[in-house]
């Protein structure tokens, strides 16, 4: 092959890497980061903008789980399951564009409330959902 064609092919590969490659790498890295444990992805938005994307979470007693709370809103939110004594570390707040992660193993069965812990809107009190933990 001519030298010119080889450079052309190298250039094409670089362009592919810069576009599709970057996207692919991002997806792979994300997969690698959160793989393994069962992960439930919650997105948090104030009630008037859509509330929690999942209103009911079903878990099994004794099976470890990770709850990943992505705040895709424009104000801070929080997350807690008061009856199980589960809440976020630190300030208990997830800023917009940030992600909070909680990993735990449910030990009780029953029907519990999960809720936002930050005064995020006038309808903040409605920003709740249910966690239902059942036997295997």
């Amino acid at each position: 092959m001519e030298k010119k064609q080889i450079t052309e092919i190298i250039a094409a590969i670089l362009v592919l890497l810069a576009t599709v490659g970057v996207i692919g790498a991002a997806l792979l890295y994300d997969e690698h980061l959160w793989g393994g444990l069962r992960t439930i992805e919650l997105t948090a938005q104030a009630p008037e903008r859509g509330n929690w994307n999942i209103q009911e979470i079903h878990l099994v007693r004794g099976e470890p789980v990770r709850i990943k709370i992505r705040n895709i809103d424009t104000v801070s939110h929080g997350f807690a399951i008061p009856e199980l004594g589960i809440s976020l570390n630190g300030t208990g707040e997830i800023k917009p564009g940030n992600v909070g992660v909680i990993e735990f193993t449910p030990e009780k069965t029953g029907d519990f409330l999960f809720t936002c812990t930050t005064w995020c809107s006038t309808q903040h009190m409605q920003m709740t959902g249910r966690i239902i933990i059942s036997e295997k």
Binding site: L17, A18, T19, G21, V22, I23, A26, N71, I72, D73, T74, V75, K95, P96, G97, N98
Partner: peptide, 20 residues
Amino acid sequence: SVFTVILMAGFVGGVSAGNY
């Protein structure tokens, strides 16, 4: 490649807070 990240972030970011 930086712009790919910018575009992707803009797309998945939707209408969330711009400062983050």
